[in-house]
């Protein structure tokens, strides 16, 4: 008898928790169900693990482990990805490069998402001259191809990882600002916001408890997708010598350095860093697409 009561209780509890399960969790579950999102998640998680635990998983030390006697060795049991022109293990450098890319992805999204969302909300909520000024500035920034604006900014600020992250972060602001502004304009007219305002809720309360939570899905989707593009653009800056400076390994820089050695047939110095970039970015794109389909079907592109 007692057993069945507790069973019933459990069941009821379970049903209750399922009903109150947030929309977000449900969307996450839906995301994980699709095959492509699963692949994306696996790629992203392995990238995160490799990036975070780089010093532990690397077989060699990335910077100081030169062995000039073992220059440009093809892949072998000792060096699965071969060695570069200074006899450094390419696998180790690819692993260490993941750390740089992880840093770039996180920093760029942090910069662009916070500043962009703030600007967009301010523009949408206050309107008037402030709105025009912010949005026209965004239009001007969007008049440049992303990569070009980032290149010009870093060229001025000076090469280096920090400046590259700042530049890409700045360049990525406009889409977030546009999104946040349209979010604010749309949601502030909704009945529940009007009701909240009628109840005397202040602007800050409306922004943080009503507008932001409701606009979270597109921001998450955009954040995930821009992680990937940020890594791609940072690699492009690295390739142009504007990103992380040697001897620290960075995927884009490794690629540009590899160009002089492929003439002699050393394909491994070029293949692996490129594959690393592609798989990481692909992971974020797959995951982002999956999230978008689950969280916000309206944004769906194919």
């Amino acid at each position: 008898m007692t057993v069945s009561i507790s069973d019933n209780q459990l069941e009821a509890q379970d049903a209750f928790s399922r009903a109150s399960e947030s929309q977000f969790k449900r969307a996450m579950r839906r995301t994980i169900k699709t095959r492509s999102a699963q692949v994306g998640l696996v790629l992203v998680v392995s990238f995160l693990i490799i990036g975070i635990f780089a010093p532990i998983v690397s077989p060699y030390d990335a910077r100081s482990d030169l062995d000039l006697k073992a220059r440009l060795q093809p892949p072998s049991a000792e060096h699965p990805f071969g060695t570069d022109d200074l006899g450094r293990d390419v696998l180790t450098r690819v692993i260490q490069g993941a750390r740089v890319s992880l840093q770039v992805g996180v920093m760029v999204v942090a910069i662009s998402l916070t500043i962009g969302t703030m600007l967009g909300l301010v523009a949408g909520l206050f309107g008037g001259i402030l709105d025009s000024f912010i949005m026209r500035t965004m239009d001007v920034m969007l008049s440049f191809p992303y990569v070009l604006l980032a290149i010009a900014l870093v060229a001025a600020l000076g090469p280096g990882l920090r400046n590259a992250m700042i530049a890409i972060g700045i360049v990525y602001i406009p889409p977030y600002a546009r999104l946040a502004r349209s979010m604010a304009l749309q949601i502030r007219e909704e009945d529940f916001v009007l009701a909240a305002r009628a109840l005397g809720a202040g602007r800050r309360r409306i922004v943080f408890t009503h507008i932001l939570p409701n606009g979270l899905s597109p921001l998450i989707v955009m954040g995930t997708l821009s992680m990937g593009t940020a890594i791609l653009d940072a690699a492009a800056l690295g390739f142009l010598g504007l990103g992380q400076q040697p001897p620290y390994p960075e995927w884009g820089k490794m690629l540009v350095d590899s160009m002089q050695f492929i003439l002699s047939g050393s394909w491994w110095v070029m293949l692996f860093p490129g594959l690393a970039i592609m798989l990481t970015v692909l992971g974020f794109n797959l995951l982002g697409d999956g999230l978008r389909d689950a969280l916000d079907p309206r944004l769906r592109i194919g």
Partner: peptide, 26 residues
């Protein structure tokens, strides 16, 4: 096709450029 398109946007074009140069040029 769609998988190919996704790989296309995920690939650094300078890497593809080097790959093409290596395979078809060298």
């Amino acid at each position: 096709t769609m998988m190919g398109a996704l790989v296309g946007v995920s690939m650094p074009i300078f890497w593809l450029a080097i790959l093409l140069m290596y395979v078809f040029g060298l």
